[in-house]
Computed example of a mutant assay.
Amino acid sequence: MNKKIWKDLQKAFNTGVSYMLPSVVVGGVFLAIALSTGKPTDKGMEITNQFMKNLNDLGAAGFAMMIPLLSGYIAYSISGKPALAPAMILGYIANNPIGADQVKTGFLGAMLLGVLTGYFVKWTKTWKTPQLVRTLMPILIVPIITTFVLGMVYIYIIAVPIGLVMDWLVKTLGELQGGSAIVLGLIIGAMTAVDMGGPINKTATAFTLALMAEGIYSPNGAHRIAVAIPPLAVAISTFIDGKKYSKEDRDLGLSAFFMGLIGITEGAIPFAVKDMKRVLPAIIIGSAVGGALGMVNNVEALVPHGGLIILPVVNGKLWYIIAMLIGTLISVAILHFTKPDIEE
């Protein structure tokens, strides 16, 4: 693939995730609060308090907006404002049943439609049109043509195969056990730590958020365990191995510790930048182990955040803590044996 196109796609996916995240946060937090007051029934948590029902509806709206926002801002990143509305409409269509077979393709369809919309609109900008028509292009002609053409292509050509892939993915991930769950957890954990909030981390985030929208929470549990491990590990390392760090790093350790508790992976970045060849392998291995332990023990995080701060909205609280602790201690141990003492 052309390097420029690949970079454009990476940027587009990161943009889509960045704009989508606030909607997911609102949806996840409101749903978690509302559901925590409900009564368990065969059909799930039944909410009886009217105020909490209203809060639940707000949370559901946040989750409903998540996929259209992802699709819209992927397209926006590629070709600007004219692509935004068509891609959001198509993202909504992808996330809801449509056509004779009532196919729903979820995040896979929405991401594909976001990319297709972006490049389709980019192509329309090359059309040679009279001045009068040109003024109508971005607000009338391009949105209508784009939505119609790609909407029909989606409904009649690509929806069914993507829907089949999505159904298979959801079914497979929902039934993962044993070795398969461990492998997925290892991959999610490693991706979470490798660039600490960068494109690879955001790819893992987008993947787990999309599965949350399909009612699968275990991958998000693995991811949210892993986000806390890098900052917690470097912080504890500075506490117990002070001679391996400068005074500046030791001072940073305390802030990294609190960032780990509230699930902000970026707290480990200053340490990784200074000593990448030792710190990066340590936190990747620890996060991968933590993610695998979370997956294999079916830990579910119901909100799109990590660290111990979300413990009240985690299913499998004990293993959530144990997996985070073991992953952190593994990273600390690797740092202990690989980092040399320094002279001030």
Rank of each mutant, 00 (worst) to 15 (best):
M1R: 14
K3M: 11
I5G: 08
I5T: 15
L9E: 11
K11Q: 12
F13Q: 04
T15Q: 13
V17G: 02
Y19A: 04
P22V: 09
G27N: 09
F30N: 02
L31Q: 10
L31G: 02
L31W: 00
G44K: 10
M45A: 11
E46L: 10
T48F: 11
N56D: 13
G59I: 03
F63H: 04
A64M: 11
A64W: 08
I67S: 00
P68T: 07
S71K: 01
Y73G: 00
I74G: 04
I78A: 01
K81H: 08
K81R: 14
A85T: 07
A87W: 02
G91T: 02
I93G: 01
D101R: 03
T105S: 12
L108Q: 11
A110G: 15
M111G: 06
G114K: 02
T117R: 03
T117N: 06
Y119M: 08
K125T: 05
T126D: 10
V133E: 00
M137C: 11
F148R: 07
V160A: 14
V170I: 15
G174F: 07
E175K: 14
A181G: 13
A181E: 10
I182N: 09
I182V: 14
G185C: 08
G189A: 10
A193Q: 09
M196E: 02
M196V: 00
G198F: 12
T205L: 15
F207E: 06
F207M: 14
T208Y: 03
L211H: 12
L211F: 15
A213S: 13
G215S: 07
I216V: 15
Y217V: 01
P219C: 11
H223P: 04
A235P: 09
F239W: 14
F239P: 06
F239A: 14
F239T: 09
I240C: 12
I240D: 00
S246G: 14
K247I: 11
D249F: 14
R250L: 13
L252Q: 14
G253S: 05
G253A: 06
S255L: 09
L261V: 14
I262K: 00
G263L: 05
E266T: 07
G267V: 01
K274A: 13
A282S: 15
A282I: 06
I283D: 01
I284Q: 02
A288W: 00
V289M: 11
G290E: 02
V296D: 01
V296N: 02
E300H: 12
V303F: 11
V303Q: 11
P304L: 02
I309C: 01
V314A: 08
N315H: 06
G316P: 03
I321H: 09
M324I: 08
T328H: 12
I330N: 01
V332K: 04
I334V: 04
E343R: 07
